[in-house]
Write a protein that binds this DNA or RNA. Structure first.
Lengths: 206, 206
DNA sequence: TTCTCCATGTAAGTAGTTACATGATTGG
DNA sequence: CCAATCATGTAACTACTTACATGGAGAA
């Protein structure tokens, strides 16, 4: 057999960086320029995936070299502009990725939960203030997500139903967080004795 | 007045990296060595915050220089070991951080949701397979989290109730994701006509 | 004219991880 | 005696962001 891939021959279904699949996916959904890809990302997946402008253009170049996208210059007046479309190979690569059975880590970095975890150091009222700011944050997030819903319904009418599903996931789990906050707040408020509340004794002392 | 802070004098409540607050918080909760801090992180906050071993030791050094922790050598037999405790200044820094009113971004990077978002490219059955793997992932997560609950209750009995709260948040929002998956699956299964299902027409063609 | 949007490109920085290295202790 | 655990340290890498730079088009 010929010495096919030495190190990083990515043309033949070697796996790409996640950002590359995002680009392929957005092109398939109708985005055309690097700029539009970034817009779409900001309007849709940014709640569970981000991609910076600086990644997009080099990534598009590479995808074109690999034959997964096809680009052509289409200036707007005098302003340079390059539009892309996904190739058959690109669709194949995208679908292969979607089908691929690989671990899908759920990576969360949440300063809110982090602070909350350590909130026992604070007085009860201070801790409750922190809790309520975490709740508010989720309420706001639910608000923005609900604002996006009409657009997602349009996308659905165009034959893509999964964007709406992921939107519902976002709404639901932030709603769940709100509910837990509320429950906890009520429990605490009921067991209210001394206003302000004493700090708990330090751990490992009893 | 004396020329106090030139650039990075962090002793006087300049803000630290999140990792530093994690270390302070874990010390307050009873962790002692760098090793124990890492263990505790893995057993508790890793679901919404991670910290690699390589960060811990340099960070402890710096905290000690700043007077926020106090360390002393306490070897186990011949094996070197350095134990730390949080100082009053350290507690103050920790509490200042907890009280600080700053934006608390909810940063999620989730390949599962990302794939799901683009799932309309797949056939219906393939998409449903993907959906069910996302659901399974959350089910497993709920399982592990429930497994931790008894420990969190012990922590609560020791006077720290917020770790249990953050644990409940994790359980609740994964449960919420499971529910959304189930609902969607049922809706799809009901509207089943042709087995396998046709691919949706590409967008922007009508 | 000025502002915002469209549109691309890149240099520099950094926060973080992976990987490796070392070695003592404990339990089976 | 072997494996797992305890315990620390650091070099190298890399993925990613921030920041800066450029400039045309269209609207107010």
């Amino acid at each position: 057999m010929p010495a096919a891939n030495t190190t990083k021959n990515r043309a033949d279904h070697q796996q790409l960086a996640p950002a590359a699949y995002v680009i392929l996916g957005m092109l398939r959904l109708g985005a055309r320029s690097g700029y539009e890809i970034k817009q779409n990302v900001e309007f849709s997946i940014r709640f569970f995936w981000t991609i910076s402008q600086a990644q997009i253009y080099p990534s598009l170049d590479r995808l074109e070299r690999d034959g997964l996208v096809r680009g052509r210059s289409e200036p707007r007046g005098n302003r340079p502009r390059r539009v892309y479309e996904i190739t058959e190979d690109g669709v194949a690569a995208l679908e292969e990725w979607l089908r691929r059975d690989e671990p899908m880590p759920f990576e969360l970095r949440d300063i809110g939960l982090l602070k909350l975890f350590f909130a026992d150091t604070l007085s009860r009222d201070e801790a409750l203030r922190l809790l309520s700011s975490v709740r508010r944050r989720s309420e706001e997030r639910v608000g923005t997500l609900r604002g996006i819903e009409p657009v997602a319904r349009i996308i659905e009418d165009e034959g893509n139903m999964y964007p709406l599903l992921t939107l519902h996931m976002g709404i639901s789990y932030h709603q769940a967080m709100i509910n837990v906050c509320d429950e906890f707040e009520h429990r605490i408020m009921q067991s209210r004795r001394e206003p302000g509340g004493p700090r708990p004794r330090p751990p490992r002392s009893g």
